[in-house]
Design a protein around this nucleic acid. Structure first.
Lengths: 196, 196
DNA sequence: ACCTGAACACCGTTCAAGT
DNA sequence: ACCTGAACACCGTTCAAGT
């Protein structure tokens, strides 16, 4: 005889996200998550394979929240980059987790669409993928280092961010980079409809 | 009556590094480390406060190994960046750990000296710090994304790396970036002898 | 002074028994 | 069908007792 469910997968993932920001990965224990959703630890295994799978779901949910935040920006390169950085500041543990364990392909694809569009605007379709990777790599590294405390001594970190943004926002026409054609315009290469 | 030591702190840290690369942080347990250096787990607490402190030492040792590898490059910006990336490929778990838990200030300072020098060469002393941060952020983010599997679909990742390198190697003269003076040349700011 | 076995608390996970 | 207490294996950490 079925009894009404006392919890749900979304509730479990949300509890995982909350605990993660509260005290890092070590705080998201099966027991703590279970208590937060009003159930005992063994019950979680009805909805989630194990703790690693739960962390994976938390990482995927974080990527999707990042996608939503970035998509809500004005779509310009500085707007995208600032939204990305603001998200990382708001949810540092989630951000770290994304790159600590990776995320699903689909989530990443969707998240990088706006960056690809901005990159195409800036340098053209041929170089859009390479350019998108340049920009996302820079923002990712910048906030990773920020969060890790790698910008500890001196200098104005916000100003350093603006500097990088200005450097990368300066678009380039073909063969401004060097004597060779850009990677993405090599024979046989077309821009796939996917992520950075 | 003192008895000869059966292990040492360096041996413990090395065992931690080895186990880390072998199976990620979850594999560096006190028991596994102890077994590797030939003692029982409780003995480790004579040299290390707890497991977190051990992981911190492993992270610091990794930064120093990175510093040595980068310092052995030709000192050019592409040479530095390629050495950095090669290190991350060789010791992915150690690289991840560096940014997962941060590292000591001194280790970071020493590691970033060559990058600062190359940056000064490229854009001048005023902008050296900002430029060094731009470059290190980019490489860091690039390999982080690589290791996290964020470059999953299509495109040539090596070519994307060369593209970013070419973009960033193109130095800029003053006021090429935008209408404002660079962040590092604002009043009261001088280039500190420290890290990126 | 360093090392160890024994012990304790805590966590992930399984499973038979409940409803 | 979902939930639970009990149980097991494993890990971090402490400590009294050895040498």
């Amino acid at each position: 005889m079925p009894t009404p469910d006392r919890t749900s997968l979304p509730a479990i993932v949300e509890a995982g996200c909350d605990l993660l920001e509260l005290g890092g990965p070590s705080r998201v224990t099966m027991q703590a998550v279970a208590e937060r959703v009003g159930v005992r630890a063994p019950s979680l295994y009805k909805r989630v394979r194990d703790r690693d799978a739960l962390l994976q779901l938390v990482a995927d949910a974080t990527v999707d929240a990042l996608r939503a935040r970035v998509a809500a920006s004005d779509g310009s390169l500085p707007g995208l980059a600032r939204a990305y950085r603001a998200f990382a500041h708001a949810r540092p543990e989630g951000f770290r987790l994304m790159y600590a364990i990776g995320t699903s392909t689909e989530a990443l694809e969707r998240a990088s669409v706006p960056v690809l569009r901005a990159a195409r605007e800036l340098v053209g379709a041929d170089r859009a993928l390479d350019e998108a990777r340049l920009v996302t790599a820079w923002v990712t590294g910048f906030v990773s280092m920020e969060l890790a405390g790698a910008f500890r001594l001196g200098g104005d970190v916000d100003a350093a961010f603006d500097y990088g943004l200005a450097r990368l926002s300066a678009g380039i026409a073909p063969h401004d980079v060097d004597g060779q054609p850009p990677a993405s315009s090599r024979p046989g290469h077309t821009l796939p409809a996917h992520g950075s």
